[in-house]
Design a protein around this nucleic acid. Sequence first.
DNA 1: GAATATCAATGCACTCGGTATACTCATATA
DNA 2: TATATGAGTATACCGAGTGCATTGATATTC
Lengths: 204, 204
Amino acid sequence: MTEGPGRRERKKQQTRDTLIATAARLFQERGYEATGVADIAEAADVSKRTFFLHFPTKEDVLLSDGRARLDLAIRVIEERAPGTPLRDALAASLAAMIDDTAARDLPTGMAALRARLIVESPAVQARVLHTAFAGQARIADALLDAYPDELDRTTAAAVLGAVVGAVSAAAMAALREDGDPAAVTEAMRRAAAIALTTLDSLGD
Amino acid sequence: MTEGPGRRERKKQQTRDTLIATAARLFQERGYEATGVADIAEAADVSKRTFFLHFPTKEDVLLSDGRARLDLAIRVIEERAPGTPLRDALAASLAAMIDDTAARDLPTGMAALRARLIVESPAVQARVLHTAFAGQARIADALLDAYPDELDRTTAAAVLGAVVGAVSAAAMAALREDGDPAAVTEAMRRAAAIALTTLDSLGD
DNA sequence: GAATATCAATGCACTCGGTATACTCATATA
DNA sequence: TATATGAGTATACCGAGTGCATTGATATTC
């Protein structure tokens, strides 16, 4: 009895993977706006209805791995070593996300595609921002749980907003200037470092 | 010959104002999602097509005054007194936006409505974020123009991202906790102050 | 091993935001 | 008075996303 998911679950996952790969290819070839959900479904040989069974919106097919990355960031905070200072926990959480992106997405070219589409499609941009914002709120909650004596809810939100805002904006600026992935990653790290200084002034 | 816009222009403005007022009322009464563009147009006694002649999307009818506020922020930076330190210029720009919001929107109830809709409608939330992000990039450009020796493009983006991100996240958190406008404004000011400390570490 | 429950996927009709086109008519201008 | 402009209209259309009833493969129970 090999554990693991059964055939049904595996087929479901396969459908999902096919949809992601197909969408990525079509977006690459024709551009985001010019590719309809019906086209993706057609090319993946499933119904349009099936697409929406797997992804709530067209944009989400691009952000499929975002939740895993968010979980990672939160886990880093929750599983910190006892006595870890707030600043270090947040820095580690950020670094984990950036490293994970660099390690997983950059080689596959997914990061590059996503970057291109973020720059060229306002709809994607809006969706990414919204997702990031929601994720940042969850991290803020985790941080508040972990350091209840040093933070209140609004301050936690402000700190996370500053950090995520800085990283996002820097990444976008770097993307627009030159798309080199290494340069973008470096810009994100620098922005994170800058924004983390907000924590140094908290005990006033 | 009274100067000013002619009758045509006045009627156009009137149509626009009617649309904004009608939309606000309907959103108030029925909620955002439950109100269609067709409903708004119908209630304002114009065609649906006319609505889209005035506003590019349904969300934009709520954000009609955003551009003026952005122009204000940029003007504050451009018209700073010679020798004003970077930090003070940015702080003044931010304060001007927050004050303008408090002064203009809070009395009319428009801020309260917008706040309610931001919290309850993901679509509005995404649109507001996107607008804020685009605006923040323009302020970053203005800041870069004003202080070319102290900033590079990525750093300017990071700093503005931190500030706007902090203020946005804090405002949202305060909105969710209790909708009191004074509390929200106060949270925004505190977040701005926190995020501005990023500037203290720039000369390293 | 047959009966039954579950659930991914389907087909279809529908809503709604947004657009294209071709038009009307009041207002502005010469 | 003649002409040009541009706000608003009617209509048909597109694409994203949903509701609903159905099918068929896989999982579970007896």
